[in-house]
Amino acid sequence: MLTYLFLSLASGAIGVLSWLINLSLARRIGALQGSFINHVVGSAAAALLFLAVPAALHPFTELSALPWWTLTGGLIGVLVVMSLNHLLPRTALLASSLLLFLGQWIGGLLLDYYCAFPLPWPRILGGLLIACGLLLNQYITLRAKASAISR
């Protein structure tokens, strides 16, 4: 269990680092172009890993039997990177992280609900508390900016 917790936390921290790297690239060459380069480099890395692991070749032969929607992950990834390339220059990194988390939380709740998993009230309450904290933080930030401008 501790290993999964560590991997989750490390993935989240590395994800934020990835956002910053992608943002830096997008600022220099554009959001769409940055997303393209990001995915070309990621595809090359995935191809090298794929070729380096012989066992990876076996399931690849069953690709035609998969439902069409299982192949949309890359498309969704492109949309996420492009969205973040537009979002990050306009919001603080912490607010962006919390907004992304909140979107994931809402998506997870909806998917759990539609896949017939129970939705325990503590999980719903926890997400609502995070949403309230995010709104309070944004309110305080906007008031501080307005106060600084009026001086």
Rank of each mutant, 00 (worst) to 15 (best):
residue 19 W to A: 12
residue 81 V to R: 06
residue 129 L to Q: 07
residue 25 L to W: 02
residue 93 L to E: 03
residue 67 P to H: 03
residue 99 L to I: 10
residue 8 S to G: 15
residue 113 Y to W: 14
residue 122 P to W: 08
residue 139 Y to M: 09
residue 110 L to V: 15
residue 30 G to H: 06
residue 137 N to P: 00
residue 7 L to M: 14
residue 61 T to I: 02
residue 85 N to Y: 01
residue 5 L to D: 06
residue 11 S to D: 11
residue 65 A to H: 04
residue 112 D to P: 01
residue 69 W to I: 01
residue 24 S to G: 15
residue 48 L to R: 00
residue 45 A to E: 06
residue 33 Q to N: 11
residue 86 H to F: 11
residue 114 Y to G: 09
residue 89 P to G: 12
residue 79 L to T: 03
residue 26 A to T: 00
residue 59 P to T: 05
residue 24 S to H: 07
residue 71 L to E: 09
residue 44 A to G: 11
residue 122 P to A: 05
residue 50 F to S: 07
residue 87 L to W: 14
residue 15 G to C: 13
residue 20 L to D: 13
residue 136 L to E: 08
residue 64 S to P: 04
residue 27 R to I: 00
residue 33 Q to K: 10
residue 122 P to E: 11
residue 6 F to D: 06
residue 21 I to K: 03
residue 64 S to K: 07
residue 35 S to C: 13
residue 15 G to K: 12
residue 36 F to V: 08
residue 87 L to F: 07
residue 131 A to W: 09
residue 120 P to A: 03
residue 53 V to A: 05
residue 129 L to V: 06
residue 80 V to S: 05
residue 28 R to P: 00
residue 88 L to V: 02
residue 39 H to L: 03
residue 71 L to I: 00
residue 18 S to H: 12
residue 4 Y to E: 13
residue 76 I to Q: 08
residue 39 H to G: 06
residue 53 V to Y: 05
residue 147 S to R: 14
residue 71 L to K: 13
residue 42 G to V: 01
residue 75 L to T: 05
residue 107 G to E: 14
residue 65 A to Q: 04
residue 110 L to T: 09
residue 19 W to S: 14
residue 45 A to W: 06
residue 58 H to M: 05
residue 133 G to W: 13
residue 47 A to C: 08
residue 39 H to T: 01
residue 85 N to R: 01
residue 25 L to E: 08
residue 35 S to F: 01
residue 58 H to D: 14
residue 140 I to E: 08
residue 84 L to K: 08
residue 12 G to A: 10
residue 143 R to F: 02
residue 60 F to T: 15
residue 12 G to Y: 14
residue 32 L to T: 06
residue 115 C to D: 09
residue 57 L to Q: 14
residue 25 L to Q: 08
residue 106 I to G: 08
residue 70 T to D: 03
residue 86 H to K: 10
residue 12 G to I: 00
residue 118 P to D: 13
residue 3 T to V: 08
residue 52 A to G: 12
residue 4 Y to G: 15
residue 25 L to D: 07
residue 78 V to R: 04
residue 38 N to S: 15
residue 27 R to E: 12
residue 122 P to N: 11
residue 71 L to F: 06
residue 5 L to N: 05
residue 50 F to V: 00
residue 39 H to E: 13
residue 74 G to M: 05
residue 108 G to K: 01
residue 64 S to T: 04
residue 80 V to R: 10
residue 147 S to V: 02
residue 150 S to A: 13
residue 37 I to N: 07
residue 150 S to V: 09
residue 20 L to G: 07
residue 61 T to W: 12
residue 82 M to P: 01
residue 51 L to D: 02
residue 115 C to Q: 14
residue 24 S to P: 00
residue 103 G to V: 02
residue 15 G to Y: 11
residue 145 K to L: 11
residue 118 P to V: 10
residue 92 A to S: 15
residue 135 L to S: 07
residue 7 L to I: 10
residue 9 L to R: 08
residue 8 S to D: 05
residue 18 S to F: 11
residue 22 N to E: 04
residue 130 I to S: 05
residue 135 L to I: 15
residue 136 L to G: 02
residue 126 G to F: 10
residue 108 G to P: 03
residue 3 T to M: 04
residue 74 G to P: 10
residue 90 R to V: 01
residue 45 A to T: 13
residue 127 G to P: 06
residue 32 L to A: 14
residue 13 A to D: 12
residue 4 Y to V: 01
residue 132 C to V: 05
residue 2 L to I: 03
residue 107 G to W: 03
residue 96 S to I: 04
residue 51 L to W: 05
residue 149 I to T: 05
residue 96 S to T: 15
residue 110 L to G: 09
residue 32 L to V: 12
residue 20 L to F: 09
residue 69 W to K: 02
